[in-house]
């Protein structure tokens, strides 16, 4: 067997998830859609959506892990993924992700309410708690949206973990 291999590196701010792992192929969700890269791929750069990344290692075994956004550089002989965070599928915690999802959804809704209020929409009413919070913290709608999407992707990946090919 002398199929061509290339090297997969996955780094996050906290750790080096994979370093120069020899693989046969890598598949991931880019912001413009799913792609699979094989050795000899032309140089390619894109950002990643939160979601599963699949690779086939030198023994032809397929495995999947989860990244919560980031970006990827494909070169003929290597693939570098710079992820915000990377987790093994069985480390994903659906319950925690769901709690986070609810939290961020609430914050997002509140942020949108505030934005409408600022634009002069009179129909919006804030509850007293929301009034109190408005002084304390700012809500970044774009960031909250990204977090909601990330948590949803995480939940989806955690629920479907057995459907993705992965090592046991």
């Amino acid at each position: 067997m002398c199929a061509k291999l290339f090297k997969l590196t996955v780094v996050t701010p906290d750790k080096c998830f994979f370093k120069d792992l020899p693989v046969l192929s890598v598949g991931a969700f880019g912001s413009e859609g799913y792609f699979t890269a094989l050795p000899g791929h032309i140089p390619f750069l894109t950002d990643l959506k939160p979601g599963p990344v699949t690779y086939k290692d030198a023994e032809n075994v397929v495995d999947t892990f989860f990244v919560s956004g980031g970006f990827v550089e494909v070169l003929p002989e290597e693939v570098t993924i710079l992820a915000d965070a990377a987790e093994k599928l069985h480390d994903l915690d659906a319950e925690r992700a769901e709690k986070n999802l609810i939290k961020h959804q609430e914050r997002l809704a509140e942020g949108r309410k505030r934005a409408r209020l600022q634009e002069g929409d009179k129909t919006v009413k804030l509850t007293p708690e929301e009034e109190a919070r408005i002084q304390r913290d700012k809500i970044d709608i774009v960031a909250e949206e990204a977090k909601v999407i990330r948590e949803m992707a995480r939940i989806k990946a955690a629920r479907n973990r057995n459907k993705y090919p992965h090592k046991h």
Partner: peptide, 8 residues
């Protein structure tokens, strides 16, 4: 010097 395909 490689020329990248960049998406988007």
């Amino acid at each position: 010097d490689q020329d990248y395909v960049i998406e988007p």
